[in-house]
């Protein structure tokens, strides 16, 4: 299946050094309950409905061949009937209905990324691949990375760590300047429960890459209150980091941006997931906690 991209964010400052463009792939082997980008989980196209953009013209209902539009309900789309054909989004004049996920032929994507080359070069920035899980599309990714490298562009990857190591090492690793590697939950049971996957492979991959990639590998830990941000979990992650020789990691404070996206896709968010940003005090406390355990 063709890799779909659900967003290309330009002038991104939080995904690596300098001014960057971040490419978000669809499809992820994990399905974290708190996911910031739930539209990235399924590899297929999704239909988004943003109620605040709707002008109530009813063009979507006229366009839908499957009578899946319900103008009265808050959800707008009857997801049981919807075949994701995209006719309603095509007809929507206000972009309230939007198809999420598009295939970019490699040449087109590279051309688009190259448009911001001056931003990269004046700031020491580059391109970051995120998602979703970019390594699911390693042929495609390899082609894009090679093209960017030929223009001297700095490349970075954000990964959940759940991938086949050998092809990654031989094909992608040589083309990457920076790998942001997520360590979410140390306990295998909790990992399965909250992300839908076992974490053995992630931990193995992390240990192996730590030995090989050196400073190109940057561990990241999401701080989700009550889920990942617990003393026990962070203690165990710190231990894993210590044994791999890391004395620091990126901490990603939780924000509830994923909730409204799930609603836009007609999903019901898990009640376990917090609906507010992590408090500044709590964030500070965990930063201190991690610093103390990594600084030894």
């Amino acid at each position: 299946m063709q890799p779909l991209i659900f967003d290309i964010r330009r002038f991104a400052l939080d995904d690596g050094p300098g001014i960057r463009t971040t490419v978000f792939f669809k499809g992820c082997p994990l399905a974290c309950l708190w996911c910031h980008n739930p539209e990235a989980i399924r590899p297929e196209t999704d239909l988004f409905f943003q109620r605040d953009r709707c002008v109530g013209c009813g063009e979507c209902a006229k366009a839908c061949p499957d009578a899946a539009i319900c103008l009265d309900g808050p959800a707008r789309v009857n997801r049981q009937r919807c075949t994701l054909c995209g006719a309603c989004a095509d007809a929507c004049p206000a972009t309230a209905l939007k198809m999420v996920g598009r295939y970019y032929p490699p040449a087109e994507l590279v051309r688009l990324l190259l448009r911001d080359l001056p931003f990269f070069s004046v700031s020491g920035g580059g391109v970051t691949f995120s998602g979703g899980e970019p390594t699911l599309h390693s042929d495609y990714l390899q082609e894009i990375l090679a093209a960017l490298r030929s223009h001297g562009i700095h490349t970075a990857l954000q990964t959940c760590g759940h991938f086949d190591l050998e092809p990654f090492r031989s094909r992608l690793l040589p083309l990457l300047d920076l790998i942001f590697f997520d360590l979410k939950l140390a306990d295998p049971g909790r990992h399965r429960r909250f992300t839908g996957q076992d974490n053995t492979r992630i931990r193995d991959n992390f240990r192996r890459l730590a030995a090989e990639a050196g400073s190109r590998l940057v561990p990241r830990v999401p701080l989700v209150p009550e889920i990942t941000a617990t003393e026990e979990n962070l203690q165990q992650i710190a231990a894993l980091l210590n044994e791999s020789g890391f004395d620091s990691c990126d901490l990603l404070p939780y924000h509830p941006g994923g909730l409204s996206k799930r609603q836009a896709m007609g999903e019901i968010p898990s009640p376990l997931v917090p609906d507010a940003m992590i408090g500044q005090g709590e964030e500070r406390q965990w930063r201190h906690f991690m610093q103390q355990r990594l600084a030894c």
């Binding site: 001056p118 004046v122 700031s123």
Partner: peptide
Amino acid sequence: QAIEAYFR
């Protein structure tokens, strides 16, 4: 940097 990139 943004101004410089715009100029370049």
